[in-house]
Design a binder for these strands. Structure first.
Lengths: 135, 135
DNA sequence: ACAAACTGTAACATATTTAATTACAATTAA
DNA sequence: TTAATTGTAATTAAATATGTTACAGTTTGT
């Protein structure tokens, strides 16, 4: 099981609900019951993509880098870099078989199409939209 | 890495290319360089969904149960039952946190939407279409 | 200057999932 | 009756994700 997208989305939700404040990885980890180091690992990815900012030192923490209306869940998906939705075969098909020789090219193209469909769907939902669902 | 969809699609491609013949798991496994037992495991799923038929005993093997024009890659995707594209968190968010209390419902709904988008995309491609790409 | 509270990150342990392998009962054809 | 094959379980090995510990570096406040 892979909960990286869920962690990232949870953090962004918290940051969105408490704008202007710096939230620590310990605080966030407490809201979701995961290890603070895991949170910091996801935050590294989000920061690398410019979605959040972090501040070190005492009273440090994380905050949004952009307006929640300008960040979509597609940005989050790309930032966390999940394994491909259709999976990823590691076998090396038999090059002497007409099907084996070509299938990886076709499967790769298909996987790209599916990832594009996921991103298209997620790009219709901003962080603001997602957070707005909460009571 | 998870190559179940790729195995299933590879087998269906071979079956489609050699209609009327029964292909053995050994033959198929040889084309893709995986273990024959893995092939038989995926075949079980495809058969449970009615996509293929199998025959036991000497000279047994597998063949398509439907016309390749009537089977889409969405059927294959549903048959192999991959883990959800957005992952699956296993943490239990803090029920005392307003965000933690609700987020799983929202994430689950989102995951359903994404799976629907994947299936929508895959349902536009039949096995016939996929195989037709080959030389 | 110093202590405290953080991030950033590495290293290691644990848990889970997937693939490979082995084994064998049941089935079918020759 | 033998050989080839599916169906399936059990085990091992490999890959991946998570949890944990540790600690250097940074910043704030006293």
């Amino acid at each position: 099981m892979n909960g990286q997208f869920q962690i990232a989305t949870h953090v962004l939700t918290l940051l969105c609900k408490q704008p202007g404040e710096l939230l620590s990885s310990d605080y966030v980890a407490g809201s979701m019951n995961v290890n603070p180091v895991l949170v910091r690992k996801e935050m590294r990815k989000l920061r690398a993509c410019g979605l959040i900012e972090s501040k070190e030192g005492k009273a440090g923490g994380y905050c949004l880098a952009l307006s929640p209306k300008n960040v979509t869940l597609a940005d989050v998906y790309k930032a966390v870099k999940l394994p491909p939705a259709l999976g990823q075969a590691k076998n090396k098909p038999n090059p002497d078989c007409p099907v084996g020789r070509q299938i990886n090219a076709h499967l790769d193209h298909l996987a790209d199409d599916v990832e594009a469909a996921i991103i298209k769907k997620l790009s219709t939902i901003t962080i603001f939209d997602f957070v707005n669902q909460f009571d």
